[in-house]
Amino acid sequence: MGGRELKEALRQAALDEGFAKMGVCRPDAIPQAAERLAAFLSKGRHGQMGWMERRSGWRSEPGALWPEARSVVMLVEPYTPAHDPTDVLARRDRGAISVYAQNRDYHDVLKKRLKRVGRWLLEQEAGEAIKVFVDTAPVMEKPLAEAAGLGWQGKHTNLLARDLGNWFFLGAIFTTAELPPDPPGEEHCGTCTRCLDICPTDAFPAPFQLDARRCISYLTIEHHGPVDPELRPGLGNRIYGCDDCLAVCPWNKFAVAAREAKYAARPDLLAPRLADLAALDNAGFRETFSGSPVKRIGRDRFVRNVAYAIGNSDDPALRPVAQRLCDDADTTVADAARWAAERLV
């Protein structure tokens, strides 16, 4: 089977598997991304994510990750919410969990589907090889997806597309097979700045630039230890991640509905009560978030976030909840609880 014929057959196999879109690029197609990454790291904007710096060589040059790879197949899977994810922000006694984490861990779900597509490719081309990646290896999925023509990195630095919006996951299949590349995506943000203007913590120093140290997703997931007191009010009731910049993108009017039932929000994670979450011990936390991406940050970091949300609730009825955490065994949780209790006097 010729390269072009194989690529179109692979595209159909990916669509049959449930992916919304597929594109192909070369492993060396993102030299500009390497420059942006170097600038990001030199300014310290990666915060405590030291692994980004340690593996920057692989991120900057995907071919170095697997020199035998000749093509990168990028695939899109929508997780578009069936509800408005910003509604919960007004319910200050409830916690806001990012849409992608309201049910099963997408890493597990998406990787299984990618492997099935990859196996199909190997069945057609027995002498070739593949490697599958889902956001767990030093792979710059967003620049590669842009290079593969799936969309562009918007001013919020996330990938978006005119025919998909920005509610989707990315998966990558590196392969030794020679597949013709697609034209790269073109930027269509225009003069819109909604994603920049909505950010509660001013995490965007400029369009197309992110300072992770101020990003709520980073602060509630990756950052360990106390959050800067200056930034705590901006967290609001967001206890795991933040969807604000995604939710306001005008291109979401073309968003594609999620086909995977495992991405549909669990009812108990749409707007959980802060008081209930604050009472979780390690065992309760693991049981509540079994199979969820939330589980990986652990009980202490999660309850720290819940304490900050309680402090931002303006609800004096939650002060006793915060007070019960003031002597928590984890010093960061105790610090967050004291901060919350003082704000609710």
Rank of each mutant, 00 (worst) to 15 (best):
D108Q: 04
E342G: 12
Y79G: 01
R11I: 03
L196D: 01
V88H: 02
G236Q: 05
D243R: 05
P267K: 07
R11A: 11
F302A: 02
L280A: 10
P138S: 06
D93Q: 14
E53G: 13
D182G: 06
K21V: 03
D28R: 03
Y106V: 11
D244R: 12
I130C: 09
P62E: 11
G2C: 14
V306A: 07
A255Q: 07
R119S: 12
D135K: 10
Q102K: 15
R214K: 15
A322Y: 06
P320A: 14
D202N: 15
A279C: 13
A82V: 10
W339L: 09
R104H: 11
P85D: 00
A147M: 04
E146K: 14
A64Y: 00
E61G: 08
F208A: 04
R299C: 07
A147Y: 01
D87P: 00
A309F: 01
A14M: 09
A101C: 09
A20F: 03
R343N: 05
R266E: 15
R113V: 06
L210F: 02
S217F: 06
T191S: 15
D268R: 08
A69M: 13
R194Y: 01
A307E: 02
T220S: 13
T86H: 09
E17V: 00
A341L: 05
A13M: 05
T191I: 08
V294N: 01
Q209D: 12
R338W: 12
A101R: 09
V333D: 02
L160W: 05
A329I: 10
A341I: 02
L164E: 09
F133L: 07
M1P: 14
S42P: 03
S98N: 11
R324D: 11
Q209R: 10
G3V: 04
W120I: 05
S71Q: 09
K131H: 13
H83S: 13
A13S: 09
G225L: 03
P320L: 15
W66S: 11
D268N: 12
P184D: 13
